[in-house]
Design a protein around this nucleic acid. Structure first.
Length: 275
DNA sequence: AGTCAAACCTGGGCGC
DNA sequence: TGCGCCCAGGTTTGAC
């Protein structure tokens, strides 16, 4: 599941490879992944565009092209973007292939096809609904304890649900959400408005620390994630709760429990994260 | 307006 | 060996 640290790592590994490359053509093998524009327009628009830079916003990866267009990817659950020399190995989950001027290829693979691709002019980025409604970057200056306090006030929903809401905060998913709540000692089903001031401070700090550690370890390769060069991350070796249901808590030894919040499983320590 | 459940999708693991 | 079932979950959509 590519969340913020995974997309950040993909961006960083692809940037030195893609900067300055010219796209000579593209093959779209699964058209339904392309949301904007129509496939023929997409192919025409891409041709001969130069890749100027790459950036990330939440879980979205943006490829800045010449002529003020952005190629935007959301990797869904199992999406991968891979840079290959020469002819890339085409597996059945390769849905989009970009040919580059240096005889290399950029491939978009996605087993479960939850990923999305867009090509829009810079002044039309607001057409991408999920991107334009994103909340602040959790590692950016706008994500302050005061912002989090305001975002949680009056909210009856579970704190875990709020953390997964991309309109509140951009880039957290199930892995880093669970890890942040454990680090802050907060039960995932706690009503958001019930958090005390010191708990909000603790959660704010935990989110920053968990995401920073995730990036430092080049992401979490729990199932499918690899970076732009096909390499796995290492944060799965440092997970405290995610994927550790019924295993002993690393802090107190209590068997970890699991609950469901807005349709997603949440693993937590009943002792370190009391209700 | 806020909240939740269902739908989209495929492979892995399980019981029988 | 193979079938049916459940699970994983980011986002959108529709219902209440």
């Amino acid at each position: 599941m590519p969340e913020l640290p995974e997309v950040e790592t993909i961006k960083e590994t692809l940037r030195p490879q893609l900067r300055g490359r010219v796209i000579t053509g593209a093959e779209l093998r699964l058209p339904r992944l392309l949301k904007i524009p129509e496939p023929d327009v997409f192919i025409t628009l891409l041709k001969d565009k130069e890749i100027r830079d790459l950036s990330r916003r939440g879980k979205y990866l943006l490829v800045h092209l010449s002529d003020s267009h952005h190629l935007v990817f959301h990797l869904g659950m199992t999406g991968q973007l891979l840079y290959f020399p020469g002819n890339a190995p085409i597996c059945k989950h390769t849905h989009l292939i970009f040919d580059l001027h240096n005889e290399h290829q950029l491939c978009f693979r996605d087993m479960r096809t939850f990923g999305k691709v867009y090509l829009v002019a810079v002044n039309e980025l607001n057409l991408i609904r999920g991107l334009s409604t994103l909340g602040p970057e959790p590692l950016g200056p706008k994500f302050t304890p005061a912002y989090l306090t305001k975002a949680l006030s009056g909210r009856r929903a579970a704190i875990k649900a709020i953390l997964l809401n991309q309109k509140v905060l951009a880039g957290l998913g199930n892995i880093y959400g669970d890890e942040s709540l454990f680090k802050a000692g907060i039960h995932p089903t706690r009503r958001a408005s019930s958090l005390a001031g010191d708990e909000i401070l603790s959660l704010h700090r935990a989110i920053g620390e968990v995401l920073t550690a995730g990036i430092r370890h080049r992401g979490t390769s729990f199932r499918d994630y690899v970076d732009g060069e096909g390499k796995s991350g290492h944060f799965q070796e440092h997970l405290a709760v995610y994927g550790r249901y019924q295993k002993p808590c690393l802090r107190c030894g209590t068997s970890l429990e699991r609950t469901r919040v807005v349709g997603r499983s949440s693993v937590y320590c009943p002792r370190c994260q009391p209700l």
